[in-house]
């Protein structure tokens, strides 16, 4: 019986070197690559997520754990056909046009990745046209838009309108966030949800894709 517990524990403590070592050992033993991911790496991150929610772990610890998990996945990935790679979903992420604020969106991205999502980061100052282009290219399950300014948050509505015009709105859920955003605003612009912080953004994605 492969030792998944040791791998999970290494992920929880964010011990990147050990995660690599144990993952490699499991691969060498001939353990199923999908089991390594699901029962070892992702299982470890599951514990991290629960502990973060309980206030027992802090953001940097979560991110370090996620980094060690990714290092493990990189070792296993070549052994799995890409369509078999487990993913909680694909999220396209960006800050709207005219807005260069970066950190909140990036925290959301890192928290999503730590919970098994594939994240495509479109960056900052992303126009509606660019969002739509990214959607066509990457076919995400969810589009997550960020804005810090009341002057730029209108870009969210523009993007959603353009998505409707292009017939993309039914295929992709839209979530929004940032200091001036509220549930009411999300309803007003036709988004599928609003999350007040990074952790609840993950919960929101889970709910929308359930």
């Amino acid at each position: 019986m492969a030792n998944f517990e040791e791998l999970s524990k290494s992920v929880i403590s964010g011990n990147l070197a050990k995660v690599k070592k144990v993952t490699q050992a499991l691969i060498d033993e001939g353990v199923s690559p999908l089991d390594i991911i699901n029962l070892g790496l992702i299982a470890g991150m599951g514990v991290v997520g629960a502990r973060f929610k309980n206030g027992e772990m802090y953001v940097p610890e979560v991110l370090v754990a996620a980094r060690s998990m990714r290092a493990g996945i990189e070792l296993v990935q070549p052994l799995i056909a890409s369509e078999d790679m487990p993913s909680a979903g694909k999220v396209l992420l960006g800050t709207v046009k005219g807005d260069l604020h970066d950190i909140g969106k990036n925290l959301v991205g890192m928290m999503l990745e730590s919970r098994g999502y594939t994240v495509i980061n479109a960056g900052i100052d992303v126009s509606s046209e660019k969002f739509v282009q990214f959607i066509k290219e990457h076919k995400p399950d969810i589009l997550a838009m960020s804005a810090l300014l009341t002057t730029t948050m209108l870009g969210m509505k523009d993007t959603i309108e353009l998505m409707k015009e292009e017939g993309l709105k039914d295929q992709v859920k839209v979530i929004i966030g940032g200091a001036p955003i509220s549930n009411d605003f999300a309803d007003e612009v036709g988004a599928d949800g609003f999350a007040p912080d990074a952790a609840s953004a993950v919960d929101l994605c889970n709910r929308l894709l359930a």
């Binding site: 206030g55 802090y58 953001v59 940097p60 950190i103 909140g104 925290l107 912080d197 990074a198 952790a199």
Partner: peptide
């Protein structure tokens, strides 16, 4: 500080 529990 960035509050490390809530990210505020």
């Amino acid at each position: 500080v960035l509050d490390m529990k809530t990210t505020i």
